[in-house]
């Protein structure tokens, strides 16, 4: 690990000022991703700004009937929070599909949003990677690309976003609250993560010095018809090859509202409004689900090692929508896929 100095922030303004004052500063909270990356010298901040003592904890009901989740809320506390688990079971399920109990205890809500890709070339400092070392090239494009993106990738980068939680947050249309040198602002989660384009070193749209303070969920609508289906190389404790967050409102035998997001396939949770719109007004059926899947996967391309993800994703979308429509969400402990 490259030596660094340590600052324990006493206030949010303290932390924001520290980030602005020293460009080599990084925020640390749970540390489950950043400490790992620092051990590999993928990240080498000159200073760490520890925000864990700031009052950004807690899950609080909002006036709009939703929930405001403090950025420092551990993933496990959120997944097992009684109101969150009852009203947003899709989110709780996605969180429990990710990592391990130990990591979920340490990892925070804000940190989960900002975790970095697990592309093996990003982690291997001996190889070219435009995300780690801009301009050095992309080793994954022609290398081992089993985990690489099939949607929204660029010549410069084919990395995927590794989060499960963010896929559910995308489907639930969460709002991300941030605060920085220019004050506080809120943005839809769809606008937080970005596609790699020609600047893959930038995972998110945040400005320097901005800190995520909370994630807000709109009032709950998908308590009955939802499923988070995650497919990976082993039964547990592995990143998704493909994951699907599916949420439906059904009334009178018709889909009223549909929300559909994919994980493991792109640089950000992948959501296309037109795919959801195809379902709305239709009766739940395999044909309708397949049509939505094809729209969501429109433009998907493989790189060789990840070609299998395209048909896998199509089938996973249909399966997750079927589970959601049936009110039979995928269990995250009993791994049989019904």
């Amino acid at each position: 690990m490259t030596p660094f100095s340590y600052l324990r922030a006493q206030s949010l303004q303290d932390a924001i000022a520290a980030l602005a004052a020293e460009p080599g500063s990084r925020v640390i909270a749970g540390g489950t991703n950043l400490v790992d990356l620092m051990k590999y010298d993928v990240e080498a901040p000159r200073r760490l700004v520890d925000i864990t003592r700031l009052p950004l904890h807690g899950v609080i009901p909002t006036d709009a009937g939703g929930l405001r989740i403090g950025a420092l809320t551990p993933n496990s506390d959120l997944a097992y929070h009684p109101q969150a688990a009852r009203d947003y079971p899709l989110l709780a399920s996605a969180i429990l599909a990710g990592a391990s109990a130990q990591l979920r205890n340490a990892a925070t809500t804000g940190g989960n949003l900002l975790q970095r890709t697990r592309c093996p070339y990003f982690y291997d400092v001996a190889t070219a990677c435009n995300k780690r070392a801009p301009g050095s090239g992309c080793s994954a494009r022609t290398g081992i690309n089993r985990n690489a993106a099939i949607l929204g990738a660029s010549e410069a980068c084919v990395a995927t976003h590794p989060s499960d939680m963010c896929v559910a947050l995308a489907a639930l249309e969460a709002i991300v609250h941030v605060e920085g040198p220019n004050g506080a602002r809120a943005l839809p989660i769809a606008d937080l993560h970005r596609l790699p384009g020609d600047a893959p070193e930038r995972d998110v749209t945040l400005d320097r010095g901005e800190i995520i303070t909370a994630v807000e969920l709109p009032s709950p609508r998908f308590g009955r018809h939802h499923s988070y289906l995650k497919l990976r190389d082993r039964l547990s404790y592995a990143f998704a090859l493909v994951s699907v967050a599916a949420a439906l409102e059904i009334a009178g035998g018709r889909v009223v509202t549909a929300r559909l997001a994919l994980g493991g396939v792109a640089h950000k949770p992948w959501r296309i409004r037109e795919a959801e719109a195809l379902l709305e007004g239709a009766a739940p059926s395999r044909a309708a689900f397949a049509e939505a899947a094809d729209r969501l996967l429109q433009g998907a391309v493989g790189l060789g090692g990840n070609d299998f993800k395209i048909p896998l994703a199509r089938r996973a979308i249909i399966r997750a929508l079927t589970q959601a429509a049936d009110g039979a969400p995928q269990s995250q402990s009993r791994k049989v896929i019904n």
Binding site: I28, G31, T52, S76
Partner: peptide, 18 residues
């Protein structure tokens, strides 16, 4: 794995100063 304030965590990913 150790227990920090009663919660299980990976000690290898915890900076002791924090």
């Amino acid at each position: 794995t150790v227990l920090v304030d009663g919660r299980r965590v990976n000690a290898c990913l915890q900076l002791a100063v924090m």
